[in-house]
Design a binder for these strands. Sequence first.
DNA 1: GTCTATAATTCGATAGAC
DNA 2: GTCTATCGAATTATAGAC
Lengths: 186, 186
Amino acid sequence: MAEKKSDRTKAAIRTAARAVFASVGYERATIRDIARAADIDPAMVIRYFGSKDGLFADSASFDLSLPPDLDEAPNLAGARLAAHFITVWEHDDGGFAVLLRSAASNPVAAAQIAAVLGEQLLPAVAALVGPQDAPLRAALIASQMLGLALTRYVLRLGPAAAMSHDEIVAGIGPTLQFYLYGSLKP
Amino acid sequence: MAEKKSDRTKAAIRTAARAVFASVGYERATIRDIARAADIDPAMVIRYFGSKDGLFADSASFDLSLPPDLDEAPNLAGARLAAHFITVWEHDDGGFAVLLRSAASNPVAAAQIAAVLGEQLLPAVAALVGPQDAPLRAALIASQMLGLALTRYVLRLGPAAAMSHDEIVAGIGPTLQFYLYGSLKP
DNA sequence: GTCTATAATTCGATAGAC
DNA sequence: GTCTATCGAATTATAGAC
């Protein structure tokens, strides 16, 4: 009974939902589309997840899982952060793409992004630079990382999507390093 | 006849459309909502703009209007670019907010952002640093500026929205300067 | 567990009176 | 020029047969 039919159906719905939400966003994604992608009946979606909102909440989960030892080599923190972000984004099951694709027009997705930044990025930054100007520095880091993800994975702008991992680390790493430890005095 | 009734009606629709599209995005914005905001009849929207798509195309126009003399003081180019972006964003009639809010889920908006970057930002960067690595440098600049706009004006994340203009220039300016003239070798 | 049929809304767009 | 009435399509969600 570890392999019930219902489990496989539910997993198929979940996989299809992540793909559809990530590619067209919450509003344009329909339960019919998702059911067709999962090759099941639309009524099954409601049966297993209650509503479209329930399915979206299930699909739109994301964890930054920042490395806890960034302070061991402060001069490498920026580069390590940049490399970590792209690795997590390209290896998670699509939860981040779901969130970012819908965040601009869906308050639930926007709130979840805000929660990830506030509960994971901000404490990590505060641990490195102290609580004093951690909010400002974390906001700058978030703006750069979300902007990269937006242009590369969501808008898929040519040059941004074409960058290699090494080019990203070489470009974004020094920026994050500056946002962590540079002088931000106006 | 410089002040026909129809002109005022059309202008009211245009103003209301920009506000509604900018606040909820293309999909969630309804013609009925826009008409109510403009205090006119929904049928007038179709009469004057043909369709919802036609109205959106009218609302989603944006011009970066970059200063042509950035090369006169190369060491200030990054700071001037940063200051220019926020000035344009906060003083245009909302066209950019309309575009960015809908870009993630609306291909028309995404294409228009790509066009602005390709036809305005890229040539300006190429004029400063040459055509060789202009695409990469422009892509990095775009990622930072769109990320700032996303977190500040669309997601309205607390710390990003709270930054003053001086803090933005002090934070983003050196980054753009690095993206223009820094070494990006991996 | 699965699917058919359909209820209940909502939306974009049109026709036509005034 | 403006508004009423409404069409036709698409959507989420439910009820109930099998």
